[in-house]
Design a protein around this nucleic acid. Structure first.
Length: 564
RNA sequence: CGGGACGUGGCGCAGCCUGGUAGCGCGUCGCCUUUGGGUGGCGAAGGUCGCCGGUUCGAAUCCGGCCGUCCCGACCA
């Protein structure tokens, strides 16, 4: 259906009252999506076309690296998830059927695909294998937000690689890097591949594909040749004006100064000349520890978890008082717990640190001399820190894809193994690779919208060309527009014809809101000269002279190829 | 899970404080008008005021409970 008079395209002048994010407002206003409940969305015809454009790009590129498309169910036996230990995840939706059998709604498909492979793959001759599908994912999100950016139900392309060994996995992973790079390049998005945390998926290595946009939920640290999620980013700290250490630490009276700002102000030193002590309890036999970062830095919880290789929690005030010192005045010097010292702390400096005595700090403290420590990299990087001499910037971004090296995280509990040439049984080595087409769509809206509405990259646009027919039904203009419409369709362009009985203002406004990349206008003015006017949506640039109605198809196809 | 806000025709809102027969703009339908930037006019349809209970002669309005939605934070393969 490509006649606007017949199409369900409910455009709105005003955004929904509760919409905050730009893509949320515009996707509803442009008639692409409608909300059903919190984090639950229907895709209306025009929106679904865009979604399917994204899907098809992904499909072509995954097919091109040998992916085999299939389909697995969303509803699955709970037992499958118990075997991998993921049944306990809070986001996993659980339910029972009429016989009281326990089921889950899958949030991803590692369990299912690995179970199949465990049954169907016996030999090294069956490997490597790359399986994928586009399927609904269900997640009991604590807080759905920003329209279609974070929802409880969404379609995901998830592919799974199965290899004999780490080397094979690396090859499969590298092929996905290539495919993903091509996919995001083709979408027309601005994107970055960043190193990322492996998170609760388990496994060893991971990258995320990030699309910068204001509504993004992640932060990405960027420098020439460097891109990483701030959750794991490392960089050279900015220098701080640091006094030399004193011959021995000197106690100073700092009544009531329990914050970095207060101490820095009271002693007239920069915050970076302080040591910030963050007391934690490591949740294995290690117990209490003190994480120490520069006063102007913040402890990054993900980096800390990775550095420890174990779960941890902040120590309570009681534990701090008992094991270290009075909360607000604790420090590494004289503390009776292990000290983890962040890399950004200059070992040669003379720092101010808590004295482990109420209302007192120590001045001139030197790491190594005044306390023992183990080095760690656990601080959050900040804009202006450097990587390879280049200052980094930190931008909000939305995660549009991710790739993980899973190893044997799922193949072992689910018994997915193969026999090698020697007849030895070995676990299959896996990778998993996700892409959210809905997020690609929303990111494109976020990145390219202007005050008039959406401006699609041509690869994602619901139609290639929109023809605005001025004049009433039965008019000469409409007849000419119909002719143009047929001609463009004949050469394979997706064309939307605005043949509604509406005024020109309404038609132009809707066209700009919907954001089809090339607009042709058939009106009295240019019709006399046998031409249609043409305008690129991006930047609303008119094309000089428009296009001739005679032989329009080739001209329009040429114009379209030049679009972003 | 903590904090905040909201719920009144399809959409955006007013009315609530101070209880008395539910209103505005947009949209929709009909007729006329208009066709190069959301034309103008006349007429019309459309609402259990989120739900349940309470107070009251009388509740959109006051009180209680519940449900739903959004925002901030926590959380987020």
């Amino acid at each position: 259906m490509t006649r606007l008079s017949q199409l369900l395209l409910p455009t709105e002048r005003e955004p929904p009252a509760d919409a905050e994010a730009l893509s949320h407002k515009l996707m509803v206003r442009a008639g692409l999506v409608r909300q059903v409940g919190s984090g639950l969305w229907s895709w209306l015809p025009a929106g679904w076309r865009v979604h399917q454009k994204a899907v098809q790009i992904v499909r072509e590129e995954i097919d091109a690296i040998g992916g085999q498309e299939m389909l697995m169910p969303v509803l699955q036996p709970a037992e499958l998830w118990r075997r991998t230990g993921r049944y306990e995840i809070d986001e996993l939706l659980k339910l029972t059927d009429r016989r009281n059998a326990e089921l889950v709604l899958a949030m991803t498909h590692e369990e299912c695909v690995t179970t199949h492979v465990a049954q169907l793959v016996r030999s090294y001759r069956d490997l490597p294998l790359l399986l994928y599908h586009f399927q609904v994912k269900e997640r009991d999100e604590p807080r759905p937000r920003a329209g279609v950016l974070r929802t409880r139900e969404f379609i995901m392309k998830d592919s799974y690689s199965f290899d004999r060994d780490q080397e094979g996995l690396q090859a499969s992973y590298d092929r996905h890097v290539g495919a993903y790079d091509r996919i995001f390049e083709r979408t027309g998005l601005e994107w970055y591949r960043v190193e990322s945390d492996v998170g609760m998926m388990g496994g060893s290595r991971a990258h995320e594909y990030m699309a910068p946009c204001a509504a993004g939920e992640n932060e990405v640290a960027l420098a020439p040749g460097y891109a990483a999620n701030v959750e794991i980013a490392s960089a050279q700290p900015q220098p701080v004006d640091l006094p030399a250490p004193l011959p021995e630490p000197e106690s100073v009276h700092t009544p009531g100064a329990t914050t970095i700002e207060a101490v820095a102000r009271m002693l007239a030193v920069p915050a970076g000349a302080l040591l910030k002590a963050y007391p934690i309890v490591v949740c294995d036999e290690r117990g209490c520890a003190l994480v120490v970062v520069r006063g102007d830095h913040r402890v990054n919880e993900v980096k800390l978890t990775n550095a420890l290789g174990a779960a941890w929690r902040p120590a309570s005030d009681e534990e701090v008082g008992e094991r270290v010192g009075p909360p607000g005045f604790i420090g590494p010097a004289g503390a009776d717990v292990p000290v983890l010292l962040d890399d950004a702390v200059d070992g040669g400096g003379g720092y101010v640190a808590g004295a482990n005595e109420a209302d007192h700090h120590l001045r001139g403290v030197k790491p190594g001399r005044d306390f023992h420590f183990q080095r760690v990299d656990v601080r959050s990087v900040e804009a202006g820190d450097t990587v390879g001499g280049h200052p980094i910037t930190i931008e909000p971004a939305i995660e549009v894809g991710n790739i993980f090296q899973l190893g044997t995280r799922y193949s072992e509990p689910l018994g997915a193994s193969y026999l090698d040439e020697e007849g030895v049984q070995r676990p299959i080595v896996m990778g998993s690779y996700g892409i959210g087409p809905a997020r690609i769509v929303a990111a494109a809206v976020e990145q390219f919208a202007d005050e008039k509405g959406v401006s699609w990259p041509r690869a994602l646009a619901p139609w290639d060309v929109e023809i605005v027919a001025l004049g009433r039904p039965g008019s000469e203009e409409l007849a000419a527009a119909e002719g143009l419409y047929r001609e463009l369709r004949a050469i394979g362009l997706d064309v939307l014809l605005d043949d509604r009985d509406a005024g020109p203002g309404a038609k132009f406004a809707d066209a700009e809101l919907l954001g089809v990349p090339l607009r042709l206008t058939v009106g009295r003015r240019s019709l006399q000269e046998g031409r249609a006017e043409a305008q690129r949506r991006r930047g609303l640039q008119d094309i000089d002279g428009g296009v001739p109605l005679e032989g329009a198809a080739e001209v329009v196809a040429g114009l379209w190829r030049m679009l972003p």
